[in-house]
Design a protein around this nucleic acid. Structure first.
Lengths: 250, 250
DNA sequence: GCTACCCTGTGGTCAGACCACACATCGGCG
DNA sequence: CGCCGATGTGTGGTCTGACCACAGGGTAGC
């Protein structure tokens, strides 16, 4: 019962990687597509000649990466179902890399600035961008009685809505991940702001300004306003008054 | 065991998530840092009151995300060691998302264009960018007898070297991931090129042109040349002559 | 002093056993 | 005949115990 199916083991050092590659292969050759259900864990283990634990480790990776979603029970919604929600995986990746000091916060802010200014300019140049979701979020941020955490959550969703409006799913997912990576930083920094009410009002006005520039088709203004909005906030947040907008060349 | 970071966690439905959060928490409070070794799987399981399988599922996720590296055996290099190599995780994420149709290739190319033109312009504006690694790669690409796969690998490394020179680790890791996501696409597309020798020569010349523009401090030229270089190649690769450089606004 | 051996602890894997869950089925009851 | 609850079945989720391969360190032997 040592379990060694001796032939396969010598070539494949890691059983869980074999499972991962198998699923990737089935995705690439079209045998699996979003919405489809994976075989059961026991079935998959038997098919590939590995133990169920190895299958589970691979499925766990796929789940964290946003490739599948698992449900217990039975019925059509049960089991592992292929989804493709890159945002989740990107968020986990960024969050953990920030925690492990793999991603400096300054680099994340700089990248966000890079992506978002491009998105804003892109939207301003687009013939008919769908800005309704973003506008709705701005209205929601006008609600009185929002605590800072709620406000920042809406703020993040607003920026994400702009990325979504651009239609580029990679940019959208990356933005979602970047935001997750610095979520803790932004929340901690908010506590350092003396007059939150004033800051919130300023942020609201800046958001409106960005949206107005996009609506007016003024790409340069949209870019500039968004840049000032983001870098201004992080400058205010930063405890050592560092300039997060120019961290690239020391 | 007051390790709970969030507010209300009455129940813990997923044991492996608890492990993940525990490790993330130890990273955030500085108890773990890159280079440190995690406790053994059995120890971790006992500490957190979960089974070893659950610990392994969490470690597998951390490994794929580029957070840890595991070695068997004993000694100082054995066990799970905290590393922070975001490129690996990003690559796995992008590759699988492309496989699962979560990321359209056009969006990846567009994002790469976005990031890379920015990087090129940034380098051109930088006072003293380190372009030696990129230059070395260009020399390596001049070697005769390179097969297309080798050439494309060097090509990808060259573009990555530019990102690294910018000093932004998030951009570098993202570029690495984007490249991995479309690696298969680029390889498959190369087979469609009739006269590879000519194309390779053109790519070489374009690379030199980009590098020269950066060296000359001409940000606009660097941006334009890089844009033309990338979008030109993917236009040549694309089977349906689609225009991957402007996929955002249909 | 040096070498060869065994010991120990590590991750890697498998097998089997439960549990909770959710749907499917079929029984009895009104 | 129709509804409703108990039971059945298959799913993921988890734990436990057991092996294996591996690599370093200690020790016995030379």
């Amino acid at each position: 019962m040592g379990g060694d199916t001796a032939s396969a083991r010598s070539i494949e050092p890691r059983a869980w990687q074999a499972v991962l590659e198998h699923v990737e292969g089935r995705l690439l050759d079209g045998e699996l597509a979003p919405g489809d259900r994976l075989p059961g864990e026991r079935q998959l283990a038997a098919d590939l000649g590995v133990g169920r634990s190895s299958v589970r480790e691979a499925l766990r990776v796929l789940e964290v990466l946003g490739l599948i979603r698992t449900h217990t029970g039975s019925g059509p919604t049960a089991g592992a179902i292929i989804i493709a929600t890159p945002g989740g995986g990107m968020s986990a990746l960024m969050r953990l890399q920030v925690a492990a000091s793999g991603f400096p916060v300054a680099d994340i802010v700089a990248t966000r600035l890079l992506l978002e200014t491009h998105v804003a300019a892109d939207l301003a140049a687009a013939p008919d961008p769908d800005l309704a979701p973003a506008a709705r979020l701005l209205d929601a941020m006008d609600a009185p009685g929002l605590d800072p955490a709620e406000f920042l959550a809406l703020d993040a969703t607003f920026h994400l809505a702009l990325a979504e409006a651009s239609g580029n799913q990679v940019v959208t997912a990356t933005m979602a991940g970047l935001r997750s990576g610095i979520e803790g930083y932004a929340l901690a920094g908010q506590a350092r702001i003396a007059d939150w009410t004033t800051t919130a009002a300023r942020l609201r006005a800046e958001h409106r300004g960005v949206l107005d520039a996009i609506r007016a088709g003024d790409a340069d203004a949209a870019r500039t306003r968004l840049h000032d909005h983001i870098s201004g906030y992080y400058a205010e947040i930063s405890p050592d008054a560092g300039a997060p907008e120019a961290p690239a060349h020391p």
